[in-house]
């Protein structure tokens, strides 16, 4: 079905690209070194891969994954090789799962402000997005 749709849209000259929506972050307090950015990524016509991200808001930006160790200890690790975004699929960067980590914040993330981020996809290339800063306890984009 997906292939037929892709062919149909292709024939019309409308090729769907990876799209990113509902981009948000959590407010931080002065001195807090790190922040996280969450988003909903929808795959385009072809399989793609989120390779990395950059932002003026932090010294370093990395893709991280949260995992639960066998002893109930939470672990956070950089995602090696990027994050697969399947054609027509949806990948949520969300709490307790994947996030874009801002390391070495240049200024605290203030509630209501926006954080510019550039995502780098293997096929779709660079995409500029803006994360809306929500409360420190927010769990989703509409959690306000």
């Amino acid at each position: 079905m997906r292939v037929i749709l892709a062919m149909f849209l292709g024939a019309l000259g409308i090729a769907a690209e990876v799209s990113v929506a509902e981009v948000w972050s959590r407010a931080t307090v002065p001195g807090q070194e790190a922040g996280a950015i969450f988003a909903r990524i929808t795959g385009g016509d072809v399989d793609d891969r989120l390779l990395g991200a950059a932002s003026e808001a932090a010294a370093t930006v990395e893709l991280h994954e949260h995992a639960m160790g066998q002893d109930g200890v939470g672990q956070m690790r950089e995602i090696a090789g990027g994050l697969a975004i399947p054609a027509g699929g949806r990948v949520d960067l969300k709490p307790r799962s994947y996030h874009i980590m801002l390391i070495g914040l240049r200024a605290p993330l203030a509630k209501g402000a926006t954080v510019p981020v550039t995502l780098r996809f293997e096929r779709a290339g660079a995409q500029r997005i803006e994360a809306l800063v929500l409360d420190p306890w927010a769990m989703a984009f509409d959690d306000r």
Partner: peptide, 17 residues
Amino acid sequence: FTTCPDVCPTELGWMMR
């Protein structure tokens, strides 16, 4: 720890709720 960007705010937010 305060540098924890995902789990700690999630659990403290749960505490607040």
